[in-house]
């Protein structure tokens, strides 16, 4: 009996300490990525290359999803609003939900599963095939050469992707609301413009997507760099990237929203 309790406690303690140790590693890794960012920024073509892989290759999924999310918002929003006789407020509903929440959050979730997993898998495989080790032996720091460019590419791509998602979504809402259902085009845009504030809504949305960009790419590069150098290890790390960054996005979104839109 005593034994069982002791073992359970030991187990719990071991889990907690190993989690905390990993968090410590991750923080140190984050700091090192920033310290060794000189190469990524000075030789910017390294980062441009990674923007292609993280940003450009995510374009299709972001644009298509944005369009559909906006179209669904148009349909659902109209259905609800017309009951209260305020269907011309559709523009506000579509724009605010996209710019404040759905744009940054859904784009970040898609980014995590499209680009984040790819980053983890790539770095993990480079580790498993000793490419990172080889780089070290060639007197090139892998954090500066491999990790930092990917990190900055993610941070640059994420806000742009979120903006594209929102813009595409508003266009989708416009297509369904104005072209298909027949809400008045003038009031669709003017109501939207009157209610969406640049600083309050759009800048805050961009700040959110920037934070998500940092969180997702940080998790992705760390999981890749820290993965077990085996096939199993890399696949596990890829899964962890998607799961951890999705949870982190939603948690960060709650915290940011609480700070940004409090009581206004």
């Amino acid at each position: 009996m005593d034994n069982v309790i002791t073992r359970a406690l030991t187990n719990l303690g071991h889990r907690v300490t190993s989690r905390i140790r990993r968090l410590g590693f991750a923080s140190r890794f984050f700091a090192m990525t920033l310290v060794y960012s000189g190469t990524a920024l000075k030789r910017f073509n390294l980062t441009i290359r990674e923007i292609y892989f993280t940003g450009v290759l995510s374009l299709i999924i972001i644009l298509v999803s944005g369009l559909f999310v906006g179209m669904v918002l148009g349909l659902q929003g109209y259905d609800t609003l017309q009951r209260y006789g305020s269907s011309e407020a559709l523009g506000i509903l579509v724009a605010l939900s996209l710019v404040r929440e759905l744009g940054p959050v859904v784009a970040a979730l898609l980014f995590a599963s499209r680009a984040g997993s790819a980053i983890t898998a790539e770095i993990g495989l480079m580790k498993a095939t000793e490419q990172l080790s080889a780089m070290e032996m060639m007197a090139v720091n892998p954090i500066a050469r491999v990790v930092a460019p990917r990190f900055w590419a993610g941070i640059i791509s994420m806000p742009l992707l979120a903006a594209l998602f929102s813009a595409m979504g508003i266009f989708g809402g416009y297509l369904v609301g104005v072209q298909l259902i027949g809400v008045d085009e003038g009031s669709f845009w003017s109501q939207m413009q009157a209610s969406v504030d640049f600083r309050e809504d759009i800048v805050n949305g961009v700040i959110k997507s920037f934070v998500f960009g940092v969180v997702v790419t940080w998790i992705a590069v760390f999981e890749g760099y820290d993965s077990e150098p085996t096939a199993e290890g890399v696949s596990g790390a890829t899964t962890r990237t998607v799961v951890t960054s999705s949870l982190a996005i939603l948690a960060a979104d709650f915290v940011l929203t609480a700070f940004m839109f409090r009581g206004v």
Binding site: G55, V56, A163, S166
Partner: peptide, 17 residues
């Protein structure tokens, strides 16, 4: 990519916001 990203930010700022 960067150009259309910035264009959509501009769209959000001017046309939406």
């Amino acid at each position: 990519f960067v150009a259309i990203g910035l264009a959509s930010l501009l769209f959000l700022a001017l046309k939406v916001g």
